[in-house]
Amino acid sequence: MRKYLFGTGLFSAITGGVTLLRSARSDEPFTWRTALAWLSWGITMALAIGAVVDSYRGARGRLVADDSNVDRDKLFAERVKRNRR
């Protein structure tokens, strides 16, 4: 589970969210640029979580969406090899 939680995509999305939270605490007014930054962060977070879910499913040999770049067969073969040890 650690390899999923500490992946670079999820880690960078979380640090980006922390940065946005820090900027929200300042006395700056909420502008359209701030709204776009939050929207961008939300999309980034959703994509990072989706990649984690696809990797998790692929490693267990389950069905992965066709638009995903996860190689299900490779992940499943690695998992089988680990379990044989």
Rank of each mutant, 00 (worst) to 15 (best):
V18D: 02
L10D: 01
E78L: 07
I43W: 00
T19E: 12
I14Q: 07
P29A: 05
R82C: 01
R57Q: 11
K81W: 10
T15S: 14
Y56F: 15
W38S: 06
G17H: 12
L20H: 12
F6K: 15
I14R: 15
L21R: 14
N69H: 10
G61M: 04
A51F: 04
R57I: 02
I14V: 14
K81I: 00
F6E: 15
L47A: 03
G16R: 05
M45K: 05
V64F: 10
S23P: 04
D66R: 10
L21I: 08
K74Q: 08
L20G: 04
K81Y: 13
L36I: 03
Y4D: 08
W32A: 10
L21D: 04
W32D: 13
R62H: 11
G17R: 14
T34W: 04
F6G: 13
S23D: 11
I43E: 00
A35P: 03
G61H: 07
A35K: 06
R82E: 13
Y4Q: 14
W38T: 13
S68L: 09
V52P: 00
R25C: 06
W38V: 14
L10A: 09
L10E: 01
M45Y: 07
L20W: 11
D73M: 07
R72E: 07
V52S: 04
G42A: 06
D73T: 04
V80I: 14
M1A: 15
R33P: 02
R84M: 08
L5N: 05
V18M: 06
D67K: 11
R82V: 02
G61W: 04
A59W: 01
G7W: 01
D73P: 04
G58T: 02
T31G: 13
G7M: 05
T44E: 03
S68M: 06
W38Q: 06
V18L: 06
R57V: 05
G50I: 01
M45T: 06
I43A: 01
S55H: 14
L21P: 03
E28A: 15
I49D: 00
W41V: 00
A59T: 01
V80F: 04
R82I: 02
D71W: 04
V64A: 12
D71C: 06
S23N: 09
A37Y: 02
W41P: 00
R82K: 11
I43C: 01
R82W: 03
E28R: 14
R84H: 10
R22C: 07
Y56D: 12
R85S: 08
R82D: 14
S12H: 15
M45V: 07
L75T: 00
G50P: 01
I49E: 00
G9V: 02
A24C: 06
F76S: 08
M45C: 09
A51V: 11
A13F: 01
V53K: 05
R79M: 08
F6M: 15
S40W: 10
R72H: 08
S55N: 15
D27K: 14
R25E: 03
F30G: 09
L75S: 01
E28D: 13
E78I: 05
R72Y: 05
W32S: 13
D66A: 11
A51T: 13
W38M: 07
A46Y: 04
G16I: 01
D54M: 08
T34E: 10
V53H: 09
E78F: 05
Y4I: 14
G9H: 06
